[in-house]
Design a protein around this nucleic acid. Sequence first.
DNA 1: AGCATGCCTGACCGATCGGTCAGATGCCGA
DNA 2: TCGGCATCTGACCGATCGGTCAGGCATGCT
Lengths: 182, 182
Amino acid sequence: MTRAAPERHDDILAAAGRRFAQSGYRGTSLQDIAADVGCSKAAVLYHFADKKAILAELVARPIDQLRELDERIAATSSPAEAQRVAAEGYVDLAVQFRRETAFLRGEFPGLFQQPPFSHLQHIPDRLVRAFAGHSDRPAARVSALVILAGIAETCGEFIDLPEAELRPALLALVRRALEPVN
Amino acid sequence: MTRAAPERHDDILAAAGRRFAQSGYRGTSLQDIAADVGCSKAAVLYHFADKKAILAELVARPIDQLRELDERIAATSSPAEAQRVAAEGYVDLAVQFRRETAFLRGEFPGLFQQPPFSHLQHIPDRLVRAFAGHSDRPAARVSALVILAGIAETCGEFIDLPEAELRPALLALVRRALEPVN
DNA sequence: AGCATGCCTGACCGATCGGTCAGATGCCGA
DNA sequence: TCGGCATCTGACCGATCGGTCAGGCATGCT
């Protein structure tokens, strides 16, 4: 029954990703993950320090790229350019990390307000402001949040749709929805 | 400490609504609700049969109106009319039930697949199809789902924004985003 | 005064949660 | 062949969950 460590590690990560996407972090038990992998709950906790560590590793890469996008947005020189960079960057990110993004967004309010995720809380702010065209008008902020939340929550439902179809569809929608706000 | 039953009932409902919106159904315990109301956990279960009954009563009115909107969409005679009815009806519904809609959408996949909510599962289908302009193209379906999911999840963040500002902002966004799809 | 009823409490229940631990098993180099 | 290390298991822990129950305490009717 023994299995090489790296494979087991990745198996657990993959199983947790599927479960989290379907039932949320709180709605998934270590027992569920272990059952999917085909090992005991204790084996899961041999490869990961605790349940939060699984989540942390699962969202590490999308979070890193979100932070990188944040810096690219900060480096722009006009609201229009910021919006373009934000739109294309976020769509790419959401498509690339379809499964993670969906539950990452869903768990954000409740889970990412406490350690060890607290420092990530401010990152989406610049994204929202860029989408809103640096406008403080409620209408612009509503539009930005609807699009952002919609992309995040929707992408998980299109796991099987090839990127070649999903990405342009999202980009076209974002451009149509946001351009008149400028 | 004794309080007239109808007021307690409504107090519990209101407290549960706030908690569910913030932490989700699974993330809220009966103890949390009882603490907010200022009574014991047993008192909560005196007014409601079980935890699910609180959720059921909380979403009964928005669900009823969602079903009613579903019928109004079915009664239309063209895709364009269906989309107009769906857009205005859903925006009204989302704005009116800002708090409920946010977590109702969030809990849908996991919770509303099992009794006593199973029969509600198919209702959003016609809404999505109407938004997509009765098109089967992935791009149209992506647009429809992004807008629907975005509205539902975003509305909860604008509890304090008056309807007079939120409603037209959402309607304008929906019109801009969906009209070119036809 | 006595009694019934409505509202509520603290104590308790079994189930499940995340997490720990001692020990079993298998593999690999010396 | 043997010892050591990595991997894994079953049993167990305390905490918390949703839910139950017997009884207390008002209030109001007879």
